[in-house]
Design a binder for these strands. Structure first.
Lengths: 323, 323
DNA sequence: ACGTGCCATTGACACGTGCAAGTAGACCGC
DNA sequence: GCGGTCTACTTGCACGTGTCAATGGCACGT
C-alpha cells in the first residue's frame, strides 16, 4: 500500500524511536515519559493523521473488539423484533468497548470471519447442535447462540396471550398460524404453549387456523372457523402481522371485533395502534436481558466463561381495542 | 494465543516448507506442483483444521473483502426499505467476493473500522459534505455514500403519487407529513416534489397535514382539513406508516375511503394489503440499482474509480382499494 | 564431460504493531 | 571515586502470511 501512515512515520516526524511512540499512544503506565516528549509524539501523530492499523495490532496478539452476529435466514428487514434486539445489543456492547457487526449470514460465513477475526461469534444457527459444532471448528473462536432462551421467549408470549384472554372471560380459543413455511418451527412452539396453557386453565382444546396470504381466502377460512361448535370467541395470533390479517378478514366478512371474537397479537408492532380496531398485543421487555447478555458476551471476549443469560419468558399485555 | 493452527504447523505435518503450503493453498498457477505433493498439503491442512489468519493476510498486503456500511441514525428495525436495500446489496456483493458488514453507527465509527480494515466504507452520513470529508481522513479508505441519489429517489416516489392521483381525476391534494422530527429533512423533499408536480399538472396548491402520533388527535386534524375550501379529495402520505395513520383517522371519523378521499402511501409496506381498506402505494424497483451499485463498489474495492450509480427516480404505483 | 533448461522446493524478507530487555547518562550516598 | 538507583529513551524480537529469488537435482543435447 502507498499512503498508509505508520508508527514509524510518526517516530521519524517526532525524532524519537518507534517504541516511545507506541508507549505514548497506548498510555503505557509502566514507562516514565516527560510531558514534553509526550506532546512531541502526540503532535506528530496528529499532524500526520496517524491511525494504527488494526490487522497488525491483532497479529501482535491484541484482542479483537468485534462481535460477529450471524443470523442465517433472518433478513434485516423481516423480523423487526430481532432487529430491535440486535440494535440494542449493539449499543450495550459499545459500553463494554466492543463493536457488534451484523452480517447477513447464509452459508458462507467463513469468508467474512477470516477477514474479521472477531472475538466472539453469536449465531442464531446455534440452536441446532449440528450446525453449531460445525461453526465452532470453522472459527476457532467462542461461538454462542445469538438469542439464548429463544424457545422460552416465544412460548412465554403465547402463554401470556392465553392467560390474558382467559382472564377476560374468553373460553374457546383459536390460534392463527402463519402460512410461510420458514416460520413453521417457531409457530409450532407457540402452538404448543397455547394448548398447554389452555389445558392448565381448564379451557377447551384450542382450534387451529392457518392464515393464507390471500385476503379474501383468509376471510372465508375465518368464517368457516366461526362455524365450529363450540365457536371460538378469541384468536391468539402468531404475531402482529398475522393478527393484522385476522383483523382484515374479520372486517371484510363483517365479524365484530372484539364483539364476537377478540384478537391479540405478539410483538407490539408499531402499526398496531393504527389497526382497525387498534390491536391488542403482547410485549416482552428485553432491556434487562440485553444489558446482562452484553456483559456476558464482554466476559467471553475477555476469555472468561460468560454467565448464561436467557431471554425473558415473562411477557406484558398491551391492551387496546381489539380485545 | 495458544491454539491457533498456522501454516507452519501444516508445513511440519506435511513434511514440506511453508512456501509450498502457501502455494498449494492459494492455488498459485505460476508454480508447478505435482499432484502427490498437492494432496499431501491438502490432507495435512484438513487434518489440522487449518484456517488462514485474516489479519496476517491483510498485513501482508491482501485486499480486504469487507465493505463497511455505516448508517448513523438509522436503526435496523426502523426503516425497512433501507434495510431491504442493504440486505439485497449484501447478497449482490457476495457475488463479487465481498462481504457487507452493517455497523450500527453512531459517532464512534473509528473503533470498529480499526479492527475491520474494510476495503470500502459506505456511509449514509456522506450526504452532508462536512461529515463526509471528516470520515475520509478517519479511514484512509475509499468512502462513498451509502444511498447515492437518495434525494431523487425520495422525490420520484412523491412525483409518482401525484401523477397517479391526477390521472384518476383527483384535483385537490393534501400531503400527510410525519411528526417525528428526525424525518423532517426527507419529508421536506417529498413535500417539495409534490408541490412542484401539482403545479406542473395544473392542480391547485396542495394542503399540508402533519399527522400527530395520537390517533384521536389525528382524526380531529383530518376532519378539520376536510373543511378546507376547496376540500381535498386525495392524500399523499409520506410513507405507508403515515398512510396507515390517515386511514385509521378516516375510519374513526367516518370518512369514506376512497369515496371522499383517496389515500396513497410509499414503500409497499408488507402490511399494506391488510389495511382497511387495502392501501395503495408506490414502489421503486431497486434490483437494477443494487446490481450496478454492487459492481461499482467491487470496482472501488479493487482500487478503481467506480462508476457513479444512482437510486432510481422512477417509481411504480401499486394500486389497491384505497384509491 | 559440460553447459542449458526444466522441475520441485525452500530460505528469507516485508507488512505494522506491542512490548521485553537493554543502555546511556544523571544523580545520590558513602 | 565507585557501585547503585532512577530516568529517558532505543534495539530487537515475534505475531502469520504471501511471494521473490535462489537452490539443487535431473534429463538432454552437443
Amino acid at each position: 500500500m502507498s499512503g498508509r501512515v505508520t508508527s514509524t512515520d510518526v517516530a521519524r516526524e517526532a525524532g524519537l524511536s518507534r517504541a516511545t511512540v507506541s508507549y505514548v499512544l497506548n498510555g503505557d503506565t509502566r514507562q516514565t515519559i516527560p510531558e514534553a516528549t509526550r506532546q512531541r509524539v502526540l503532535d506528530a501523530a496528529e499532524r500526520l493523521g496517524y491511525r494504527p492499523y488494526g490487522p497488525a495490532r491483532l497479529l501482535r496478539g491484541a484482542r479483537s473488539t468485534l462481535v460477529l452476529m450471524l443470523t442465517p435466514g433472518l433478513q434485516h428487514a423481516t423480523d423487526f423484533v430481532a432487529a430491535g434486539i440486535v440494535t440494542q445489543l449493539g449499543l450495550a456492547l459499545r459500553e463494554h468497548g466492543l463493536h457488534l457487526v451484523w452480517q447477513l449470514g447464509t452459508e458462507d460465513e467463513r469468508g467474512a470471519s477470516v477477514d474479521l477475526a472477531p472475538a466472539v461469534v453469536l449465531s442464531s444457527a446455534g440452536e441446532e447442535e449440528a450446525a453449531f459444532t460445525d461453526l465452532r471448528q470453522q472459527f476457532s473462536v467462542p461461538v454462542r447462540p445469538a438469542f439464548p432462551g429463544l424457545d422460552g421467549f416465544l412460548a412465554g408470549a403465547a402463554t401470556a396471550q392465553v392467560e390474558y384472554l382467559a382472564g377476560r372471560g374468553r373460553r374457546v380459543l383459536a390460534y392463527a398460524a402463519p402460512s410461510r413455511p420458514e416460520l413453521q418451527p417457531t409457530s409450532e412452539i407457540r402452538w404448543r404453549a397455547i394448548r398447554s396453557t389452555a389445558e392448565r386453565l381448564g379451557l377447551p382444546e384450542p382450534l387451529l387456523l392457518t392464515v393464507p396470504d390471500d385476503r379474501a381466502q383468509a376471510g372465508r377460512e375465518l368464517a368457516s372457523l366461526l362455524d365450529a361448535d363450540p365457536a371460538p370467541d378469541a384468536v391468539c395470533a402468531y404475531n402482529d402481522e398475522v393478527a393484522f390479517a385476522v383483523l382484515a378478514a374479520a372486517h371484510d366478512t363483517g365479524v365484530p371485533v372484539p364483539g364476537r371474537i377478540a384478537v391479540i397479537g405478539v410483538d407490539n408492532h408499531p402499526l398496531g395502534p393504527l389497526a382497525v380496531p387498534a390491536l391488542s398485543t403482547v410485549e416482552s421487555d428485553v432491556t434487562e436481558f440485553v444489558a446482562a447478555f452484553a456483559a456476558s458476551v464482554a466476559g467471553i471476549a475477555r476469555g472468561e466463561e460468560g454467565a448464561e443469560v436467557l431471554l425473558p419468558e415473562r411477557a406484558q399485555v398491551v391492551e387496546r381495542a381489539s380485545t
